[in-house]
């Protein structure tokens, strides 16, 4: 079984077409970030990117062809948790790029700090994404903003951060968890409402629900004008 380039920048896929698997080239060969599977081809190490534990991977598997993240980009990642997805984003942006990984919980930060010590292109930030002022001197203008946080006002937080940190023409990715906004309402209604809120500030390029990998989730890919 081999690994070949996919249609997306710096993302690879298995050539086993029965089950599509994603890979990214390991930035620090010989080191796993979180116990994932590793495939080696032509001397390059690839880390398997499981869609069940990463919303970005499930977005790609559900057919998105442009995530907006490229080699050399500066990514502001809000809601990094222990850094499963962050490690793959760090692979994608490579040595020329940089990732700011932000989370509020000290517990998950501990694991993230250990990962940052291996991967020099990730900076851990322990701060509340709802208060952009509190971490504004710890980040720089970003090419891509990615947000995956479980808060009721996640859209408001997203727009706040887009305004504060995303450069003009930059990409903004938002993972929405319908269950966090309102457990009783139909997810479809919530997605429609989020879409309306986003549309007044950003251009929506892509929208996909993340079934079957993540239930009641969807992802918006937007661009700032």
């Amino acid at each position: 079984m081999g690994v070949r380039k996919s249609k997306i920048f710096e993302v690879y896929e298995s050539d086993d077409f029965r089950k599509r698997k994603l890979y990214t080239a390991n930035l620090v060969p010989g080191k796993k970030a979180y116990g994932e599977n590793i495939a080696v081809q032509d001397g390059i190490e690839y880390r398997e990117w499981d869609a069940g534990s990463s919303k970005l991977a499930s977005l790609i598997l559900n057919g998105c062809t442009n995530t907006g993240i490229r080699n050399g980009d500066v990514v502001l990642y809000l809601g990094s948790s222990t850094g499963t997805t962050v490690s793959h984003v760090s692979d994608i942006v490579g040595k020329e790029g940089f990732v700011f990984a932000l989370d509020v919980a000290p517990r998950v930060m501990r694991d993230l700090v250990f990962m940052c010590e291996d991967r020099k292109n990730i900076a851990p930030i322990l701060a509340d994404a709802n208060k952009p002022d509190s971490f504004k001197d710890r980040v720089m203008e970003a090419d891509v903003l990615y947000q995956d946080i479980a808060q009721k006002n996640q859209v408001e937080i997203f727009l706040k951060n887009v305004k504060a940190f995303l450069k003009k023409g930059g990409y903004a990715l938002l993972a929405v968890k319908a269950r966090n906004i309102d457990v009783t309402r139909n997810p479809k209604d919530i997605f429609r409402q989020v879409r309306a809120e986003l549309e007044s500030h950003l251009t929506i390029i892509d929208f996909r629900t993340l079934d079957p990998y993540q239930r009641d989730h969807c992802m918006f890919v937007c661009k700032r004008q």
């Binding site: 940089f98 700011f100 000290p106 020099k120 900076a123 851990p124 710890r138 980040v139």
Partner: peptide, 24 residues
């Protein structure tokens, strides 16, 4: 840019470690 990255990396790592320690 590379220098900026390095400075930010070091600053953030140090600050975060301190914050995690003080969160206990």
């Amino acid at each position: 840019r590379k220098k900026d990255f390095e400075a930010l990396y070091r600053k953030n790592l140090e600050l975060t470690k301190k914050q995690v320690r003080e969160a206990v």
